[in-house]
Design a protein around this nucleic acid. Structure first.
Lengths: 189, 189
DNA sequence: GTAGAATCGGAGCCCTCCCTCCGCTTGCCG
DNA sequence: CGGCAAGCGGAGGGAGGGCTCCGATTCTAC
């Protein structure tokens, strides 16, 4: 559901440049400071007035969507691409760790995936679906414990994200997600 | 460090009752809604004016401390009591799971333990110390992977907490922390 | 070069929070 | 019971966040 243009006339050249700059700065600011950063602060960092930010992105949510939705969708696409991978266990664990590690590098993305249906309940449904398929195959292949449901794994991903986010700040990236993955493996205990 | 009274004269009977009631309602409200609940809302639920809440607890932080510090300290005491337990592995994992499960039942306690040094940097130090001892013994006993540092475990606890908190809302309490514990066990993979 | 449309800046509105202040009420001691 | 300190309620100050509005500015078609 749409940005805007396309139906109306194209943006003026300077406006298009400014829009790009807002997007760029917002992306950096969100990655560094998370979803709670204020639009005033983003405008300040970009060197614009608040009005300019609001004209291009009418609400804060619209800006978040423009910056983050694509990234989150990539995780879903990634999961779908692995739906028929040879090694179902490898596919599942690889995806899980990749999501945890990549999201951990971006505070806003973390906030988004950790939170409930904060942004895009549609995306959340797709995400759950893709995760469910990957999990089911991995379980049939005997690589993941049978008793874990898709909701369990969704919550474990939230946990891995929280752990990775903090660990990353101390230069221990990747290890926390690995521990959680080992916990999900079959035959442990 | 100190509530208040004791040095001054004792509270008037009605004031003491009211103080207890604020504490009681605040405890429930915080458990249900987390650290971000407003003092106005707590006052409203207790049936008092904001002024009354602020007289008994001069700042929001003071109220949080009165409600939560004791609970968090119990975790530290619990860890210390287990410092010489027979089975070091059992002691470590039991403690880890207990913290994750009990805190998961209380949103504010979760927020507190997940966040950095939000409240009581002294407590945080004690907490880290107690956790470190429990971990070191469990590792010497071969029950926990050697490569995990105390900071790693602290972050994994944050993760387990986040996972448990969400899982609890769907009636899957305890399972998430168990998975993380299995991931920390030695000899996996 | 110029007129007019598109864009911009940021003051300012509204809302939510924490906290303070003070006039009114209430328990308590003599 | 009377007086008064202790306690109470809640208006409102100050900070900060989202969003709007409109005069000033800048681009661009002609």
């Amino acid at each position: 559901m749409g940005d805007d243009h396309r139906s109306a006339r194209p943006l003026r050249a300077d406006a298009r440049r400014n829009r790009e700059r807002v997007l760029q700065i917002a992306q950096e600011a969100l990655a560094a400071d998370g979803l709670t950063i204020s639009l005033d602060e983003i405008a300040r960092r970009a060197g614009f007035g608040v009005g300019t930010v609001h004209r291009h992105f009418p609400t804060k949510e619209a800006l978040l969507e423009a910056v983050l939705l694509g990234r989150a969708e990539r995780f879903v696409a990634d999961a779908r691409a692995l739906a028929t991978a040879e090694d179902a266990g490898r596919a599942f664990f690889g995806w899980f760790r990749r999501v945890a590690e990549q999201a951990a590098a971006n505070r806003a993305l973390c906030d988004l995936l950790e939170g409930g249906a904060g942004l895009g309940s549609v995306l959340e449904a797709d995400f759950a679906d893709a995760l469910g398929r990957l999990l089911a195959r991995a379980q049939r292949a005997g690589a993941v414990r049978r008793e874990l449901s898709a909701d369990d794994v969704r919550d474990l991903l939230r946990g891995a994200l929280a752990a990775e986010r903090h660990a990353r700040a101390r230069g221990a990236a990747g290890r926390m997600a690995a521990v959680v993955c080992d916990g999900m493996r079959a035959g442990t205990d």
